[in-house]
Design a protein around this nucleic acid. Sequence first.
DNA 1: GGCCGGGGCATTTTT
DNA 2: TGCCCCGGCC
Length: 780
Amino acid sequence: MVDFINELNESQKRAVLHNDSASLVIAGAGSGKTRVLTYKIAWLLQNGFPAYTIMSLTFTNKAAREMKDRIGKIVGPREASRLWMGTFHSIFSKILRREATALGYSSNFTIYDSADSRSLIKDIIKELKLDEKIYKASTVQGRISSAKNSLVTPGMYAANKDLVESDMFAKIPLVRDIYKRYATRCKQADAMDFDDLLLNTNILFRDFPNVLEKYRAQFRFILVDEYQDTNFAQHLIVKQLSGGHGLVCAVGDDAQSIYSFRGANIDNILGFKKNFPGCQIFKLEQNYRSTQNIVDAANSLIKKNKEQIPKNVFSEKEKGEKIQAISAYSDFEEGYLVASKITDLRMRHHDSYNQFAILYRTNAQSRIMEEALRKRNIPYRIYGGLSFYQRAEIKDVVAYFRVIINPNDEEAIKRIINRPARGIGDTTINKLKECANLNNVSLWSVLQDPLRFALPVNSGTAKKLTGFRELMESYIEELPKSTAYQLAESVIKKSGLMTEMYADRTPENLSKQENIQELLSGIHEFCENKQEEGSDEIGLVHFLADISLATDQDTGNDEDQERVTMMTIHAAKGLEFNNVFVVGLEEDLFPSQWAKESERSLEEERRLFYVAITRAGVNCVLTFAKSRFRNGKTDMSSPSRFLNDIDSRFIDLPSENRLVDQVKERAQSFNRSAFGERATSFQSKPATQSFNASSKPVNPFANTPSRPAPTAAANTSGGNFSTHSVSEISDGTSIRHERFGNGTVLSQEGNGDEAKIKVQFDHSGERTLLLKYAKFIIEN
DNA sequence: GGCCGGGGCATTTTT
DNA sequence: TGCCCCGGCC
């Protein structure tokens, strides 16, 4: 057993070892929170809590995966894989699939993503003949979402005076009707949206005490990370589930609560003690990440907020440099200054580009930074924007998958019924929808028997609809017989999507082909992984369940290339860099113009700034521009009030004099038009592959390093990865696996088709492979 | 039924 | 400015 306990400081140790009542661990920025969580789980595992009795809830899938890996290193990956670790949504979707029938869903229910729900809401607004300018789908979606997050069902919504009044006031009194209809339609489609996963879990636990009892008995210890960003629905789930024993460990930092705009409630952490009797509070206050100056600066900033849990975050690292605030004449110059500063700091400290981050409040700010870095040949990677699964061509294919698994999935049918074009246009689709609504059945039911539901279409259209139905039915028939990969291939080929994509070689089509190839190779990998692990869950159902919630922030592990990171501050939560640039510190941008309505939202902006600063280990640079091009016009802006919130002992603000000098000095050479021209000519050049993060396909699947598509691999890698028999291998044999890299065989078990080997990989941990499928090279 | 162009509109986002 | 959506036209 690893003596990991002694790697902890005193307060970390206390937090890890307290396990006989609820606890709240207030973890200051950079205080080793993940280490505490990891070791606590390892400790529990080694002290009488079997893995399947521990539930550990994280904020993102990526966080769950990383923590599982770390725990696997201590207790072994097999043990770690039995933990119930994941996001609220993924863990409870698993439970809901098991218990679906109790709630009137099937276990293969679809999960609607936010685009699906918005599109459905839009449909409903149209159906109700409401003015779409007044009833904006996104606004209505937001209201419904926050209702669900507060566990308000449609019935409760209509009966709630405050909500109804607030809707009246906002001149959208019929939200309650939309909500009601939305819920009915989701149910009919056998679909849950993201919020439903939490709402329905609560309903399940409320209405089926025996089910609640079952899970209470199973989960004897519950850990929740990032508690400051949980909403009411999540909080109540934790409370319900831990009702029997109260062994909950919540970890978080109220100073880093930045997601209230999507329902997170900071009161969950502020009032935690009240909700969990006997709760012990632990504070992790030593920051191991940043210099004293950065920690002090951040502390002085957050002190301006009223509501918070008192704590004293400190650093014992070197004193460090002051935070530097830089004034720029324009947003263009801001970019230039940041780029110069990066070059400059890199020369002085020999830091890798990976140790640099540019953080901004809004994604729109990334473009100008991008241009500036490109001019200086500084490699970068932009996070955010369209994720792999949001690309149209991927959504199309996935929509086919969804219909195959759940033909009642209305949103998916709407998406693919005429893609590729089969002559089924809006008119027909509207007739279909009307007919389905009239009869209270799904679109698919109407498609199956148009005559019975008296669908008013002519024979030509009827024929086209039948064609579509038969296509889908043929896939449904294939479903039980095929692996996800086989079926996916068949979908892409037989549906005509492929033909359409290869019709001509426009750049758009080429990129689509690339993405589809990437999807296919991801599915292939999914199947191979499962097979090698000896699992037979390789059907499309399993693949779809796997990806429905993996919307992916985890863009592959290609850390191989050094790049500057560019992302929003929200996306930077939990990360750290030696050098951090926070750009656009201007009134109405940061703090955002929307945040000024209430003290509460202004405090959240301040916490956001706190998160930004505390990402920095050594150097923190803040920039602001006097003029900025925004929403199609140039606006003058004044420096952010937040700059004055930092104690002047810890920050170098540009003096007015220097500011004037700067303006004079650079005004001619860096005025907008000069930059504008050069920027244009630059853009017309094709983007260099290595600098263009977004054009490089990344494998969004699985936890394994990405690799070329299977077809390509066969051609380029020489094809010498192959399967091997038991006789070729003994303990200690060195192998090189197609995906996991180099490793050593630890042991063997089983015979024939069941023969497996356990391998310790240098970079991929310990894995069990099924010899029948595993492809590798024997090295000695 | 599909394509093009003009008008309106611009946070943060993971699930 | 750039994207999205709708309406008009082919």
